[in-house]
Structures are given as C-alpha cells and as structure tokens.
C-alpha cells in the first residue's frame, strides 16, 4: 500500500488534547521544560483514550477503521454535520473491576471525540458502518465524476 506523504489536508482533525511530549525520552530529559513537562499524566491519558484510526482510500471508497475494544455498537455514535464526521463514545470501566483491586492498569477508559473533515467527493448519504471484534469500519463511497471535457474552439 502506498502512503500518501503529501497529505493534502483531505481529512483534518479538529483539535483534541494531545500529549505535549517529545518523541524521544532523552530529548525530554534534556529539554529546558523537563521539570514541568516530564509527568503530565492528564494530557497523556486524554490522548491515549482516543481510538486509533486508519484511513485508506481507493478510487471508489474511503475506508476508516477505528479500534474500539470493549465497545458495542450502542456505545459509539457517528454524526455528520457540515461535512464533518464526528465519532464519539464512552468506554466504561466495568463496576466489577472498580471494586476489585488493580494489580496492573494499562487500559484506558473515558469519553472520546474525534472529528474528520470529509472530502468534497464523499457521498454523505451512502456512508455505512459496521462493528466487529471491537473494530469499527466506516465505508464512505466516493462520487465518480467523469473528467470534464473542455471543448477547444477555433478562434
């Protein structure tokens, strides 16, 4: 699969909390803002509970896949407004595990919202979505327009 390096701002993400962490721990340690930024668990968690998304396309369809482990289709809401697709939902921690003691806690819970600006050729009325094994797949058909021909007139 080829990667679209020159991302043409086809899909924009609306601002969501992102960790302010640099990609390298060593950079982090030697950065002047180290003492303030080193442990910022709040922003890290806000980003970590965002579902991971893959977005690919062929000539007929855009395909969006979002990882939503433990969520059923009733926990996830999809909305389209002003050409912007919003995926939001909440992952609840089971009350059972809340009562129990945690020995290890790596999974994230909480609400999330991700927004994507749809490209102009997306057929909004024909979007379909399905969920299986904690993976949400959204198919966005593309409008196929025949290339516009411009007649050349003799002067």
């Amino acid at each position: 699969m080829k990667t679209n390096e020159r991302f043409p701002r086809l899909f924009d993400e609306c601002p969501t909390p992102r960790p302010l962490r640099s990609p390298d721990l060593w950079d982090e340690l030697f950065s002047p803002r180290f003492p303030m930024n080193f442990v910022d668990s709040k922003t890290v968690n806000a980003s970590a509970c965002l579902p991971k998304i893959d977005l690919t396309s062929d000539e007929h369809t855009y395909t969006l896949q979002a990882e939503l482990p433990g969520l059923t289709k009733d926990d996830v809401h999809l909305e389209i407004e002003d050409g912007c697709l919003t995926l939001h939902g909440e992952r609840h921690e089971s009350s059972h595990s809340k009562e129990d003691g945690y020995e290890l806690h790596e999974r994230h819970f909480g609400s999330f919202t991700r927004k994507l600006t749809l490209p102009e050729d997306a057929l909004i009325d024909k979007i379909t979505a399905s969920q299986k094994d904690g993976l949400l797949t959204i198919a966005i058909p593309r409008e196929s327009k025949p290339a516009q021909r411009i007649p050349v007139q003799s002067a």
């Binding site: 433990g70 290890l104 806690h105 094994d133």
Partner: peptide, 30 residues
C-alpha cells in the same frame, strides 16, 4: 507513545483481583 513508533503491537492489559479470582483483561481490537 514513544514505544508505538515502531508500529509493533503489544496489547494493553488490566489485572484485577478479589478474594475469589484474579482477572486479566486484554485489549485485542479486531
């Protein structure tokens, strides 16, 4: 987040315990 740059997958886990059981939960989307 840093570890994710290699694009390798490692499931996130929770381990809880009560008097009767230990429970391991792993996120394995897809």
């Amino acid at each position: 987040q840093e570890g994710q740059t290699e694009k390798s997958f490692l499931p996130r886990l929770d381990v809880t315990s009560n008097q009767e059981n230990y429970t391991i939960k792993a996120d394995l989307p897809g």
